[in-house]
Design a binder for these strands. Structure first.
Lengths: 267, 267
DNA sequence: ACAATTTGTCTCTTACAAAAGACACCTGTA
DNA sequence: TACAGGTGTCTTTTGTAAGAGACAAATTGT
């Protein structure tokens, strides 16, 4: 029997870290795992496969899914055998946006910046210790470099990561960065000390530029957004081709930092 | 002891229907109630008050809230003692939008229509048997009639409600409409038969206009959005002053129906 | 047509999460 | 100062939800 039937066109999602082999799991935790799983797969999935994916008993999964569908947090997708996120989650998400000035205004600034420059622009935040793209606006290049909203990437891979950690103690930083995080997609390995030095530099200069980190073709410009003075709440960033000229880069950096500063004012 | 301490500036949210007095409640259900409660209050709330609001033991509430905050579904708000929806819910909500053509395109159409006409425009859907404003764009009037996204209103109060139920059996309609739903905000009482007749009319004409139903000052124009031919998946609607001229109304109706039809095409 | 799966529903058992309640700790105020 | 009210954390008990598994029905492939 082949495992992971039906989703084998993906790197086969790791079957959820088995904590204690046959141990019972709290229903709520199962639900949280289901959400994360759906978030990573980004598509509707059959209940059987879902059970496999989150490593939960089939019977339990059926029960939970039914509850969630009844509540509207999940919905049965088109053909009636797969589930995905539901309207309720969208509504709650909009509630969050409404209650969150920074996000609401940040989305606007990002969209404007992207229209103004034609480049891909993103709003990034820390999400439970990980770098997260919270909003992204594609830009107008023929081959745009897009990464999905909600994508989580190791902090050391990004310019924003260096800014988001500015002001933290060394110990805190070590806690948030695993060994694996220091290995870039192309196999190169960053030194933790270099990363920490980068953070200090970013903090003092008030911006950060990285080249060819996540991939060989892009450069990433990032500027901090402060909630209270000194506390970096988010970053705005621009993703541009790596061969963008020095002058052009500086010009973009000015626009970027202006908008990031504007966002900081009344947060 | 006064009940509902701390949130007494609101019509005092009903302390959650007590099903069986002292009975134990499943954790997941408690969580669902918490979400609904936050959705109705639309503001961050202290954990103690939250426990009261959902009628749950304090200890349980603390445990659940901690789980949810750790998971990022809730966040501790500013002063550090109140909770509200978290970033994760926003991300999941965006996943839903991405996976849902109709919603994504519907939001666009609504925004465009609102800009084009200057009137408040909304996208509405059935959400677990209730009329729900899924997206709303304010329009440009000095005193705009706005209702919050995610608001749930009795079906008989709205033009959209009449369209959303088109095609359902009489029995199904009766199930979805309670006695209370037939009583308008001003105290007038609709006859169920009249409502069902309205639905039939709306179905055959392909649009619906109601005047002074939810309040005395507005008129509501609605047009259906079909998923498969015959099945009303959503409605688009315009909210205009009740004294809008016949000609103006007809003109708006044409624009509205055009866009609604466009939405229906490829859903 | 016949396996071989998978799906959705159901039952029963017991491990464990929900609830009760006690605790120390902060307020504000009388 | 003592009091009344709220937080946030712990421990203990027990009702019950998670899980194992069996089932018929639907779906696959050969």
């Amino acid at each position: 029997m082949q495992d992971g039937i039906g989703v084998t066109d993906r790197p086969d999602i790791s079957p959820a870290e088995d904590k204690t082999p046959g141990s019972r799991e709290k229903g709520l935790n199962r639900v949280l795992e289901i959400f994360e799983f759906l978030h990573t797969t980004q598509r509707a999935i059959g209940i059987g496969d879902l059970a496999k994916g989150v490593n939960a008993p089939r019977s339990t999964t059926y029960t939970l899914v039914r509850s969630l569908v009844d509540a509207g947090l999940l919905e049965m997708a088109g053909d009636g055998n797969r589930v995905y996120f539901g309207k309720k989650l969208y509504l709650y998400g909009m509630d969050y946006v409404r209650g969150n000035d920074l996000l609401r205004r940040g989305r606007q600034e990002v969209d404007d910046l992207s229209r103004q420059t034609g480049e891909t622009s993103e709003l990034c935040m820390l999400q439970s210790g990980r770098y997260t793209i919270v909003h992204s606006s594609p830009g107008t290049r023929p081959f745009r470099i897009s990464s999905a909203t909600g994508l989580q990437i190791p902090l050391p891979w990004t310019a924003s990561g260096r800014l988001l950690l500015a002001g933290l103690e060394r110990a805190d930083i070590e806690d948030m960065v695993s060994e694996d995080d220091l290995v870039l997609p192309d196999g190169r390995r960053l030194k933790l000390d270099d990363f920490i030095a980068d953070i200090a530099t970013a903090k003092s200069t008030g911006y950060c530029v990285t080249s060819g980190l996540v991939d060989a073709y892009t450069k990433c410009l990032a500027a901090p957004v402060f909630s209270v003075p000194g506390k970096v709440e988010a970053t705005m960033c621009l993703v541009v081709p790596i061969d963008t000229s020095r002058e052009k880069t500086d010009e973009l950096l000015i626009l970027l930092r202006q908008r990031a500063a504007r966002l900081s004012i009344a947060a």
